[in-house]
Design a protein around this nucleic acid. Structure first.
Lengths: 227, 227
DNA sequence: TAGATTGTTAATCGATTAACAATC
DNA sequence: TAGATTGTTAATCGATTAACAATC
């Protein structure tokens, strides 16, 4: 099977990123009792091209759509969840129990995506004593390897400062972690076969800043309206 | 000037997302006292194609590189910051002072990218009374419009639950916001000309999950090692 | 049937990569 | 000079979009 770094299971990375949006919208329809849905309808709702939606669906759907009616909403939700792996729980560990780390620990959304954070780790001994009202305990770093191996955890969430991010990732890989969600604003190198997903706020801000700069330059009057 | 939704200032969105990585690496070199840097060196450090790096640099750089030596590190850092707009501060408001919102309020990293959150807003009256040790105050939603207009804020950061995200974004747009950083895991529609940047954890997890699922299926022995 | 929708094949578009002459 | 690096033009690659026959 051919598999460049831009494809997973033969589907393009971009398409993969669109799937949660479909799932999200379909779940909403489902909760409203809508039985069937068509590609053009999804496309219109999410502001996308209808052929693109159809192709994406064709990739994950287990049964064909009916001309004129479309697809069965419930079935499509099931297929999407199955394809995305949200139907069987993936356990994860989180390293770095600072402000952001603790916010993620309390973030209920992970469960919805089939991810359950079983434990958090931090070098700060004062944190490991407390619980912060989260169900998970915060352990000292020394326990990381033992816990990952015993529980066979494969997902690591990194919320440490940039300086220690690479070291933490190396450690996680050594502990058997296969996929890393990195929130540290720095470039990380991982061995082949380990998936690194950067959740970097800097990149997002880059897009925003460049866009704002452009619109400001094009419409200078917006800078000087008012006193 | 031609400008599809995939380009900003003529640079591709993908290229734009790479720029903060360059900046990050170059700043590290700068702090180590490295005077010049070449495209191949950057490419090797960040695991990218050297021609791609050169093209990206050509877009933002104010002066040409010297064959055999490369580029002046300091100058390149300056050019990148200038292009990304990190050199002049953009003020932002944050709506939704829940766990994640408060984490972002305390997140020092924003300043580095030229973004300063001036105030937070929430419907929860119990939150607006407290301060949470952050420098910013949390205001009731009613004050949003007045503050945005008076201070001419153009960036909005949305950290509300999915259900209220669309309403909040509409409100922000009405208040004169031009760019929205959306952390709510839902699809949002904005008028043309308003930039929406989704920071959706669901998408990241989709990539992770699909990847894990694939590797699990391909190497089933990894599921059953041990007892 | 007529019309909406599906699924597929071909055309377009854009981004990445390769090849190469120019330069220090 | 020789070799590394630059910047640009052409080739490749992949994703999106358009066109269209098939189907209910």
């Amino acid at each position: 099977m051919r598999n460049s770094k831009n494809t997973v299971q033969g589907i393009s990375r971009q398409a993969l990123l669109r799937l949660p949006n479909y799932l999200n919208y379909l779940k909403k329809l489902q909760s409203e009792g809508v039985q069937t849905v068509s590609a053009p309808k999804i496309a219109a709702a999410l502001g996308q091209n209808e052929v693109q939606v159809r192709k994406d669906i064709a990739f994950v759907s287990s049964c064909a759509g009916k001309p004129k009616t479309g697809f069965d909403t419930t079935q499509l939700v099931r297929d999407l969840e199955s394809f995305l792996g949200y139907d069987n729980v993936n356990e994860a560990v989180l390293v770095g129990a600072g402000q952001l780390g603790r916010a993620l620990l309390n973030y209920k959304g992970f469960a919805e995506y089939g991810v359950h954070i079983v434990a958090a780790f931090d070098t700060d001994e004062t944190l490991t004593a407390q619980t912060f009202g989260t169900e998970q305990r915060i352990f000292p770093m020394e326990k990381l390897e033992d816990l990952c191996e015993r529980m066979r955890i494969h997902i690591g969430i990194v919320t440490v400062p940039a300086e220690s991010a690479q070291a933490v990732c190396d450690k996680l890989v050594a502990c058997g972690i296969r996929a890393i969600l990195n929130f540290a604003p720095t470039h990380i190198t991982v061995p082949q076969g380990i998936l690194l997903q950067n959740e970097n706020i800097a990149s997002s801000l880059a897009v925003l800043s460049a866009h704002l700069k452009k619109t400001m330059t094009n419409n200078p009057e917006t800078r000087s309206k008012g006193d």
